[in-house]
Write a protein that binds this DNA or RNA. Sequence first.
DNA 1: TCTAGCAATTTTGGATCCAATATGCAATAT
DNA 2: ATATTGCATATTGGATCCAAAATTGCTAGA
Lengths: 238, 238
Amino acid sequence: MQYHKRRIKRTLAVQLDAVDISRTASASSVIYEALRRAIIEGRIAAGAPLRQDEIARQFNASRIPVREALMRLEELGLVRTQRYKGSVVAGLSADEAAEIFDFRLLIEPEVMRRAVPRMTPSDLSAARGACEAFAASKDPMQWGDLNRALHAALYQPSALPYHLEMLGNAMDRIDRYLRAQLLMSDGMARASAEHAGILAACEAGDAPRAAELVHAHIAGARASFLEHLPGLVAGAAR
Amino acid sequence: MQYHKRRIKRTLAVQLDAVDISRTASASSVIYEALRRAIIEGRIAAGAPLRQDEIARQFNASRIPVREALMRLEELGLVRTQRYKGSVVAGLSADEAAEIFDFRLLIEPEVMRRAVPRMTPSDLSAARGACEAFAASKDPMQWGDLNRALHAALYQPSALPYHLEMLGNAMDRIDRYLRAQLLMSDGMARASAEHAGILAACEAGDAPRAAELVHAHIAGARASFLEHLPGLVAGAAR
DNA sequence: TCTAGCAATTTTGGATCCAATATGCAATAT
DNA sequence: ATATTGCATATTGGATCCAAAATTGCTAGA
C-alpha cells in the first residue's frame, strides 16, 4: 500500500502542478523582501526613517509583520534601530565599504576556483546568457539583478552555500554604491569586458586564471570606488 | 551653548558611568540573547521545536517579542521556521560544518595578519590573559566564552568590524560542535599549545607567521572534527 | 528675541484577542 | 483490519488595543 499511496500522490502532483503551500509567503516576508529590495536598490536613501505605521498602511497590514521585517533587516545590517526611536536605513562609511570589498577579495576568488571544475555545460551556458544580458543592458536600474544572476551562475556550481550566503549579504550592503559607481565612470564597459574574460577562463576550465581574474575584477572595482566616490557615502547615517 | 551642553554631558558621564539608555535591552533582545546562547552552547538540541507560548511563559512576556527574537535567529541561521508549523533549532550536516571551517580558513588568517602590526601592548596583555584563562579552564561549559574572548583580543586590533561580524556568525554556528570535539579528543591541550604559539608570533610582531599558525590551528580543528565526529551531526534536522 | 519648561501629538514596544492552519484522535467505510 | 474522513485541540500569523517614551509645538519668562 505504501507503493499505492505514492503512486496516487505522484500522479496527483503531476496533474495539479502542486506547490509546497507551507513555503508560501507570509505578510512579514513579503514586506521584508520589498523593503530589502528598496534599500538595496537605493530607492530609500541611507538615513531615511522607516515608520512602522506608514509601511503598514502601504501594505494594508498591521504593524506586527512590519516589525518582524525590520528585525530581520536589522540582523542583515541594512537597518539600524534605536529603542523607542525607530529604524533608519543603514549606510556605509568609505571605510566600511572598502572593508566589504576586502571581504569579497578574500571569498570570491576561492569560490570561483572551486566552482570551475564542477561546472556543467548547462552551468556555462547559463553564465554566458547572464553575461550577455548584463553587457546588453542599458538600464542601470536592472543592473543589480543582472549582476546577481551572473554571480549566481558562476558561483552556484561551487556547492558552497554558506559562502554564497555571506557573499549575498556583502553584496546587499554595497549594491547601492556599486551601481552609483558604474554610472559615474566607464565602469559598465570595463565590467562587461572583465566578465567576458572570467567566463572564458571558466569555459577553458582554467580555475586559477578564473580566480585571478575575479580578484582583479573586484580589486578594480574597489579602486574605482575609492577614487571616484569620496563624497558618495557622506550621509552614511551611522 | 552647543559646547556648554556637551561639556556637562561628558562630565556627568564620567561621574555616573552612564550608559546609553536608548540601547538598554528590550524584551525581544533579552529573549533573543537568551535563545542565542542556549542554542550556541547546545543546551537546546538541533531539531528541537521552539514553542512561542512556552518561551513567552518562561520570560513572563507575550508571544510578540518571542516572535521577533525568532525572526532574528532565523536570519542568523540558528533557527528554521515553517509557516504555521513553527521554528526548530537548526543543525549542521557534516558538509555544512566543513564548509564553515573552510570559511574560517579564508578569513581568520587574513584578519590575524592585519591585526598584528596594529597591536598595542595592552592588546597583547589582554590576549595573554585570555590565552592563560583558556589554558587553565577545566570547565567545558565556559570554553566557548573563553575562546570568544581570546579571538576578540587577537582580532579586534585589525579594525575590521565587518569581517569580525561574519566570523562571529560562523562561530555561532559551529560552537556546539567544536565544544563536543574538544571534549572527545586531546583537543584542549593541543588548542592551548597552538594558542600560545599564535600569541608568541603576535608578540614578536611576525604577522605572516601568526597568520600561518592561525591557518594551521583551524585546519587541525577541521581535520579533527571530520575524523572524530562522523555521527555527531546525525540529527542535523534540516 | 531667545530659551527653558510643559502639554499635546506621534511613535514605538508589548499585551491581548481573533482567524487560519496544523496535529492528533475517534468514527466510519471499504 | 486498514485507510480515509471529520472533529477537537494546539499552535501560529496577524489585528487591535494600551502603556511608555520620544518628538513637537506652545507658552511663559528673562
